[in-house]
Amino acid sequence: MIKPNPFKDADADRAEIWDMLVAKDILAYTKADWSMVENDFLEDEFFAVNAGFDNDPGKWNLAFSRFENYRDSWLEAAKASVETEYAEPLEEAVHKLTTLKQIEIKDGKAIARKQFDGTIQVVGKEPEVLKWQTLYYLKKTEAGWKIVGFTGYLPYTK
């Protein structure tokens, strides 16, 4: 089941961020269609940190100092998912295990905590386990909210 936006009628900024980071991102990823999300970033400001599922920030690394490297990695992973045979519709499966409830907004900036907790059954193989969280850093522009970076693959916590 595709989750509805929990902020839709309550908060326009949070609703916009949720749509971008959940609904649109999942749809684009499951179709391996970068064009759906390419305008959601401020390329010149973008960078991303990989926490490697480790609680120790001293072990984290600057995974993507260049936007192009992130885009290429995203496309490679999305294409691999599209080529995988899942036992359930992929978009619905990812929605089922994705949560985005915490969005802090202050002075035109935002931090959004997106969590993944569950498995997706792969035909004839072990299920894929998704159990981590990502902190997205966003900036409000005249064109709406844009992603300026994230810290991904943080250990999952409730």
Rank of each mutant, 00 (worst) to 15 (best):
V82T: 11
F64T: 04
L27W: 05
H95M: 10
A32S: 15
I17L: 08
A10S: 15
N39W: 01
L75P: 06
S35E: 14
A78S: 14
A63E: 15
V94E: 08
F47Q: 10
P4G: 10
F7Y: 15
I17H: 06
K31N: 10
E91R: 11
W34K: 02
K79P: 00
N5R: 10
E38T: 11
F7S: 07
S73F: 10
N50F: 09
H95E: 03
A15G: 11
V49S: 04
V37L: 09
A93C: 03
A93D: 01
K8D: 12
D25V: 02
F7I: 00
R66L: 02
E83K: 14
A51L: 05
N61H: 04
E16P: 02
V49H: 05
T30K: 11
D19R: 10
F67S: 05
P89Q: 13
K3G: 04
A10F: 09
N5G: 06
S81A: 10
V82R: 13
L42G: 04
S35K: 13
N69S: 13
E76I: 03
V22G: 04
V22S: 02
E76P: 00
W34H: 06
M36W: 00
A12D: 13
A12H: 08
M36E: 12
S81T: 01
L42W: 00
A87H: 00
S73K: 12
S35P: 01
E83T: 03
K79V: 14
Y70D: 09
W34Q: 01
K3Y: 05
A87R: 07
S73N: 11
P57H: 02
R66N: 12
P89E: 15
N5S: 08
S65C: 00
M36T: 07
G58Q: 08
N55M: 06
E85T: 15
R14C: 11
M36P: 03
N69V: 05
W74Y: 14
D33S: 11
A77T: 04
Y86L: 09
E85N: 13
A78W: 04
A93G: 12
K24T: 14
D19K: 04
A10G: 04
L42N: 09
A80T: 05
R14P: 05
D11S: 13
K79T: 13
M36F: 02
K8L: 15
E38C: 11
K79Q: 14
D13V: 03
G58D: 08
L62K: 12
D54W: 00
M20C: 01
N61A: 03
A32W: 10
L21Q: 05
A51M: 06
E68L: 06
L90A: 12
I17Y: 07
D40C: 13
F7M: 09
V82C: 08
L21T: 00
W18Y: 15
N55S: 02
A23H: 12
D44E: 14
A12L: 13
N39P: 05
E91M: 12
E85I: 12
F46R: 01
Y86R: 03
N50T: 00
D11P: 09
D44Y: 06
E83W: 01
P57E: 08
D44R: 10
N50V: 02
R14W: 07
K24Y: 00
K8E: 14
D40P: 05
A51E: 02
M20D: 09
E88A: 14
E45S: 13
W60S: 09
N39C: 07
D72H: 00
E91H: 08
D11T: 07
I17W: 06
